[in-house]
Every structure is written in C-alpha cells, then in structure tokens.
Amino acid sequence: MGEWIEACGSDDVEEEDVIRFDHAGRVFAIYRSPDDEYFATDGLCTHEHVSLADGLVMDEIIECPKHNGRFNYKTGEAKGAPVCVNLRTYRVKVEGGAVFVEV
C-alpha cells in the first residue's frame, strides 16, 4: 500500500483536462475525464520527458505537447509512435473536494 497524498482540489482541473502535480521530486499528471472521473499518471512523457500537463486531453487520451505521442491515461497504455513505453498509473480518490493520489 502506498501513501495517499493530496494533489489538488477537485475543481482545480477542468473537465477533459490535466494539471501537473509535483511531489517529493517526482512529477505527476492529474486528469479529469469528460465523465467527471479523476486519474493520475507519471507526469513526464516516456519518450522525451516532456510535461504531459501541457498536452491535450481527448476523451481517454493524453497527447504529449512535444511530439504528439498518445497515451490512454486511464490505463497508461502507449498508443503508438513516437511513444513505445507505457505510462505508470496511480490510484486516485476524491474526498472533501480534494483529489488524493496513492504514491
């Protein structure tokens, strides 16, 4: 079991969008899906370590802002070149208007 860390307020992320969360020298990306669910992944693209929080969320896809590499942010699956390595995902819960990530 990991430690639950408060990442942001639930209203800090717009629907179908992503924000960056830094914790203990690590970078995470916190997503809010179009159907109002929250997800978390590592925050840097597995291709060239660019912050995914500057990218574009489309349905369940996050697209990297540098080379347009695409991941399914719910599963972390890399969806094709130029990304080949999956993103690590983290469990998320929302309590009292805050989003917590298990790191």
């Binding site: 291709h47 060239e48 540098k66 080379h67 070149a81 130029p82």
Partner: peptide
C-alpha cells in the same frame, strides 16, 4: 513512414 516519423520527432527535439 516509420523512418521519417522518428526523424521528424528528433527534428522537433
């Protein structure tokens, strides 16, 4: 299409 997808990614990096 494979070579040039990767070469263009490098061009942007």
């Amino acid at each position: 299409p494979v070579t040039w997808r990767w070469s263009h990614a490098r061009h942007h990096t």
